[in-house]
Nucleic acid binder design. Structure first.
Lengths: 192, 192
DNA sequence: TTTATTTGTTAACTTAAGTGAAGGAGTGAT
DNA sequence: ATCACTCCTTCACTTAAGTTAACAAATAAA
């Protein structure tokens, strides 16, 4: 489990043994049960998440309806906007499967950053990379039809379609569950 | 003009007079004519952009059709994914109006970052903030209908609707120009 | 000025997503 | 075992976006 974390970090910076031990000794690993709400709308927590195993999601409750907009799986990092802006959260964060997460709070991160300037560099690289990737995702979403989005997901993250409830997938694709059902039927028909 | 830049930087870090002069002496300011293409698909430039005045956009050419997905106006920063990943660009960057930009290349930024570690901190804060903001934008896009997106834009960036051609706005909203026309007519009717 | 070209609007028609309702399968609780 | 609840699918119907085409207005080019 700890290897996953160190492998991830090594994609951005190289660490000495001392540095590795310092990070592991913080012991941020946490087991979380499916269904757990990690952050509520309006809440002002300072926690960031890194998924070692399992799946978490961002969702909203709009007019009583749950709208899931993002999934985070193995090796994905999520720092809520409420942490960045020190403001109440617009969204919920929930646990889709039993998961093992790394949970860190921003005070602690600031401390690590000042102790290990390298860590600051990693955070910059990581968030720049995520920003660029998310830009591309957003663009592809805008320029695709719901059916294309589903086909695209089928290519890029086939696992998600298996491990996540359909109604969560639907809002992730920007449509209603009924439309996703119909759309899948349509595609299936074409294939056969 | 230089004040705009320094004001922007001061939102993230504080600079000494020496540091301010060092940055200004790089003289990265560039005037760009409307219609200029700053980055082409497939190209591998190392240039990042900061808009001091005017407007630039990200667009794609998909099946011969131009699809605009993002606009950057005063005080907006844009580092293309091609710079981050050192890979050919998926998109074009074009100039919507005559603009004054700050154009920096990534080698130079690396140099500044090592000279002034503060700058590294700024870049981290900035990209974290932009990532969080873009997440919210993406989520709102997913959970809204085209009409709601237009109404939302009318609230949040009313200037854009004036200064940008309708067909670019349409793809920015994820719809066809004809649909935007119709949708506007629909709304106008309701108001009267 | 005249001619193209681009841009925005309108209209008729097609297609697909939204809506409301119903029913079946699976899950969990009592 | 029964009941309640959630989840997924299906259907009929409504609504709005996509499509194709035509046209007027504005802009750029000859």
């Amino acid at each position: 489990m700890k290897d996953i974390l160190l492998d991830f970090i090594s994609k951005y910076i190289s660490l000495t043994e001392d540095e590795k031990n310092a990070i592991l000794s913080l012991d941020l690993f946490r087991s979380v049960k499916k269904g757990t709400v990690l952050l509520k709308e309006g809440q002002n927590s300072k926690d960031s998440f890194f998924v070692l195993k399992g799946c978490i999601r961002i969702y909203y409750i709009i007019e009583g309806e749950e709208k899931t907009t993002a999934f985070y799986t193995e090796m994905d990092a999520l720092t809520p906007h409420s942490v960045i802006n020190n403001a109440p959260s617009d969204y919920f964060i929930g646990c889709v499967e039993d998961s093992i997460l790394l949970v860190s709070n921003s005070d602690m991160e600031a401390e690590i950053n000042s102790k290990f300037p390298k860590f600051e560099l990693m955070c910059r690289k990581l968030s720049e990379e995520l920003l660029a990737k998310q830009r591309i995702d957003f663009d592809k979403f805008k320029t695709s039809s719901p059916e294309q989005r589903y086909q695209n997901l089928l290519q890029s993250r086939p696992d998600l379609i298996q491990r996540v409830p359909q109604h969560q997938l639907a809002s992730f694709l920007g449509i209603k569950p009924q439309s996703l059902s119909r759309l899948r039927g349509r595609i299936h028909e074409k294939r056969s």
